[in-house]
Write a protein that binds this DNA or RNA. Structure first.
Length: 359
DNA sequence: TAATCGTGGTA
DNA sequence: TTACCAAGATT
């Protein structure tokens, strides 16, 4: 078993200073821990930091978050991805506000929206000093190496988690649950890295079974991933005389849920011809005089598929009244107050550029 | 159990 | 350029 004291000594000397972390020896604010942990799900520290600052400035407390409109939350979240996190964060804020305080134990936290096995343990350990080991990707990797688990992920996940839970058996670890958890994060982020781990500077190198067997760079093993399919869409940028854009809201559930998009054709596995796509032009029976022109193609990579979007643009010389299913005309200022995905921002920018250049 | 769900950085 | 990766949750 690797010595907890060695890890904690290393942490005391090398801990990262991060916006959501309390100073050494202080207790972190559970609200700050919660927001940061949700933002950090499948997201790098570098990407999160500016979002975290803006979020805390706009929503300083649970109460402020709970009484804000959901659109405000999605607006601040725009570009961070996995938008169900923002919706669950909002739902969770309502429940917390009703409760009047933060639950302090893992099981109560685990029952809240958007808080799963990892996040409940992380909040309990970091904000409330519960003697638990939150198992994220870092801890999973560290445990797989320290105990030389050669079975591949994701099948070995439960086994690795079980072994990771034994890392804090010593009293030194259980005396400092918050520091112990964050020490594991920092070790995984800076020393026990996925590729070419820096074993020479690792406080656990002598106890590491993978290193003893020369396997440290090969663990954790991972099952091969299926290749990413390609899908195709077509979207339409319509600009009115005052420079506003026609946008509609995507369904609350599913991909990019609740964010705004340009109207268009559904995404499918074969490309849309211009003729086919024209059937999905907005304002079809409300304005026959619109002149649609091709406005480029955008490539966007999601986790589970690659998307190519054909763009078309038109500028109306007269004010238009869109039908409900066409969407609404919004100014840039309006858009900044609502959620918009990186994909749609990219599409909007490209179509605008193509239209400006073309006419 | 296996899919679904974003994005930007890096080797 | 492709492939992989990041403090996972939900269904």
């Amino acid at each position: 078993m690797p010595p907890a004291s060695a890890l904690l000594d290393w942490y005391d000397a090398h801990r990262r200073s991060l916006p959501w972390r309390a100073p050494a020896g202080a207790i972190a604010d559970p609200y700050h821990v919660w927001i940061s942990e949700v933002m950090l799900q499948q997201t790098t520290v570098t990407a999160v930091i500016p979002y975290y600052h803006r979020f805390l400035e706009r929503f300083p407390t649970v109460e402020a978050l709970a009484r804000a409109p959901l659109d405000d939350v999605l607006a601040v979240w725009s570009g961070l991805g996995y938008y169900s996190r923002a919706r669950n964060l909002y739902r969770c804020a309502q429940e917390l506000a009703a409760l009047g305080r933060f639950p302090r134990d893992v099981d109560s936290l685990r029952a809240l929206p958007g808080i799963g096995a990892y996040t409940s343990a992380a909040i309990a350990a970091i904000a409330f000093g519960a003697p638990v080991v939150p198992v994220d990707g870092n801890v999973e990797r560290i445990a797989a190496r320290v105990f030389a688990v050669e079975a591949p992920l994701p099948a070995a996940r439960k086994l690795i988690a079980k072994k990771a839970a034994t890392l804090n058996r010593e009293k030194e670890a259980r005396a400092r649950p918050s520091d112990f958890a964050q020490a594991l994060f920092d070790l995984g982020a800076g020393v026990c890295t996925p590729r070419t781990p820096a074993c020479m500077t690792c406080p656990w190198n002598e106890a590491c079974a993978a290193r003893q067997q020369g396997l440290q760079g090969d663990l954790p093993r991972k099952a091969p991933k299926a290749q990413r399919p390609t899908r195709y869409g077509a979207h339409f940028l319509l600009v009115d005389p005052s420079g506003r854009f026609l946008l509609r809201r995507r369904p609350e559930e599913g991909l990019l849920g609740g964010t705004m998009e340009m109207p268009g054709a559904p995404w499918r596995d074969v490309s849309w011809s211009a003729e086919e796509a024209s059937g999905y032009r907005p304002m079809k029976d409300r304005s026959s005089k619109l002149s649609w022109t091709p406005a480029g193609r955008v490539k966007h990579v999601f986790t589970h598929f690659t998307l190519f979007v054909d763009l078309y643009a038109a500028r109306s010389l007269v004010a238009l009244n869109p039908a409900d299913d066409d969407g609404v005309f919004l100014s840039g200022e309006d858009i900044s107050r609502m959620g918009m995905s990186s994909l749609m921002i990219k599409c909007l920018e490209n179509a605008m550029y193509a239209m400006t250049k073309g006419g």
